[in-house]
């Protein structure tokens, strides 16, 4: 049974077709890539899957349930979590609080428990804090726990954002250009980082990326979008040889595909 299945997902902005007939199956444990030239509709696909936009047509089945029309926080709670193309941490909050708030979907206490400081509240807060610290330690960010997120260097902020997405304990992790703005060495580290996430946490990963080296190296399967249409799908080797893909990238980012 696939973890995520999209059936003919189509989205319009006004009269403009941003994504058309997008079909994809992601099996549990896979590491899948989504590439395409700028403006191809990749981020729109992520926005559709996470509920930020509502698909105009089509079905998005996650864990055997159609999630089109569900509010984003509920989709997040069901197990789809993401990062953003430009970092969107809660800047004034500490790194630790960023990770804690990302567990919002799992909070079970209510206002009464907070106001009366009942054990249910205290225990859960402790569990949330412990879980957050565990995640930060796991990814070597514990030293920065008490710093406001905006004080961290760019590369660290990227990592915090990924950890924040993981804090919700997702089944499927969407990474939107995780390597953007990184130098080759940082990209190298990121590749290890992403593979560690999969091996240690068992999370299925779907990522958008322009850095072909990263995509071709770590993704098992790749979808290529151009002008909202899926023009190719397959393993890294197939994609690199696909003429349609080369055409779509020609003159745009040909230096990256080679």
């Amino acid at each position: 049974m696939p973890l995520l299945k999209t059936e003919n997902v189509t989205h319009f902005f006004g009269g403009l077709k941003a994504v058309s007939d997008f079909n994809l199956r992601i099996e549990p444990g896979e590491l899948v890539g989504l590439i395409g030239p700028n403006g191809a509709g990749k981020t729109t696909v992520f926005n559709l899957v996470t509920g930020a936009y509502r698909a105009t047509e089509g079905r998005i089945i996650f864990d055997d349930q159609d999630i089109v029309g569900l509010p984003p926080h509920q989709i997040n709670k069901m197990g789809i979590s993401r990062t953003f193309q430009t970092i969107r941490l809660w800047n004034e909050m500490t790194v630790l609080d960023n990770i804690k708030v990302a567990q919002h979907g799992h909070i079970q206490y209510d206002l009464k428990d907070i106001f009366l400081q009942l054990p249910r509240y205290r225990n859960q807060e402790q569990a949330i804090e412990a879980q957050a610290m565990k995640m930060l330690k796991l990814f070597n960010l514990a030293d920065h726990a008490q710093q406001p997120a905006r004080n961290l260097p760019y590369g660290q902020q990227r990592r915090v954002e990924i950890v924040r997405a993981l804090a919700a304990n997702p089944k499927l992790l969407l990474l939107d250009e995780p390597a953007a703005g990184m130098n080759p060495q940082e990209i190298e580290e990121l590749m290890v980082f992403i593979q560690r996430i999969r091996s240690e946490l068992g999370v299925t990963i779907w990522l958008i990326e322009h850095q072909m080296r990263l995509v071709m190296n770590i993704c098992e399967r790749i979808t290529v979008l151009d002008f909202g249409e899926t023009i190719a799908e397959g393993g890294p080797d197939d994609i690199q040889r696909n003429t349609k893909v080369i055409e779509a990238y020609l003159g745009v980012e040909d230096e990256e595909i080679s």
Binding site: T50, G51, A52, P71, P72, H73, N76, K77, S81, R82, F84, R88, L89, W90, N91, E92, M93, V101, A102, Q103, H104, G105, R164, A165, A168
Partner: peptide
């Protein structure tokens, strides 16, 4: 700090 990001990260903003 960021309402849309909050909703997407599981915060029931409404």
């Amino acid at each position: 700090e960021d309402e849309i990001a909050s909703e997407l990260m599981g915060v029931n903003t409404k």
